[in-house]
Amino acid sequence: MSLSREQAAQALGMKVREIIAVDRVDSGYAVTTHDGQRTLVDAHGQRVDRDAVHPAPAGDPVTPATPADPATPVAPAVTEVPDGTADAVLKWVDGDPQRAQAALAAENAREKPRTTLVEALERLTQG
């Protein structure tokens, strides 16, 4: 059994769109949120320690630090999402799931995320 993004969001009291990744670890699941923080959640979907929030591992939380297969190329980390209109952001994303994930994290970090842009970016990240 694996922990879904929906279950992780519920365990952390967050929106699903704020959950970037859920990775299996020895003691449960490491949940990476839009701000790059990782929180440990046990196999039952319960937060292990409310103070156990740690920075994500080195590298962009959207881009794996190392490829699973050395023959598989890894795109460079996306570091700068344009701060402009929704159309400008979508043009920059250009259908790239990694850029969409980075743009989604940046948009969710705004004081007032643009719901239409968030929905479009979520569709792009789900492939």
Rank of each mutant, 00 (worst) to 15 (best):
M1R: 04
M1F: 08
S2E: 12
S2Y: 08
S4A: 07
R5E: 10
R5V: 00
E6F: 08
A8F: 00
A9P: 01
A11Q: 06
A11L: 02
A11E: 04
L12V: 03
L12S: 04
G13Q: 02
G13Y: 02
M14H: 07
K15S: 13
V16D: 05
R17N: 13
E18G: 05
I20H: 12
A21F: 05
A21Q: 13
V22L: 00
R24I: 10
D26S: 14
S27K: 11
S27H: 09
G28W: 04
Y29I: 04
A30I: 00
A30H: 09
V31N: 07
V31T: 03
V31M: 07
T32R: 06
T32N: 08
T33V: 06
T33F: 06
H34A: 12
G36H: 02
G36N: 00
Q37K: 06
Q37R: 12
Q37V: 00
Q37W: 09
R38I: 11
R38T: 14
T39F: 05
L40C: 04
V41P: 03
H44S: 13
R47M: 11
D49M: 05
R50F: 12
R50I: 01
R50E: 13
D51I: 02
A52G: 14
P55F: 00
A56F: 13
P57C: 07
P57Y: 11
P57I: 11
A58P: 03
G59V: 01
G59M: 02
G59Q: 01
D60C: 11
D60A: 10
V62K: 03
T63F: 01
T63D: 01
T63C: 01
P64W: 10
T66M: 15
A68V: 04
D69K: 07
P70E: 01
T72I: 13
P73L: 03
P73V: 08
P73F: 09
V74C: 10
V74W: 06
V74F: 06
P76N: 10
A77C: 09
V78S: 05
V78N: 02
T79C: 12
E80S: 14
E80Q: 14
V81S: 03
P82S: 07
P82T: 09
G84S: 09
G84W: 13
A86E: 03
D87S: 08
D87I: 02
D87M: 07
A88I: 04
V89H: 08
K91R: 14
W92V: 13
W92S: 05
V93P: 04
V93D: 03
V93L: 02
V93H: 07
D94C: 09
D96W: 05
P97R: 14
Q98H: 06
Q98Y: 13
Q98P: 02
R99T: 00
R99K: 14
L104F: 05
A106H: 11
E107G: 03
N108D: 08
A109W: 01
R110G: 00
E111Q: 14
K112W: 12
K112G: 09
K112S: 14
R114H: 14
T116Y: 03
L117M: 05
V118G: 12
L121Y: 08
L121G: 00
R123Q: 15
R123K: 15
R123N: 11
Q126E: 14
G127F: 09
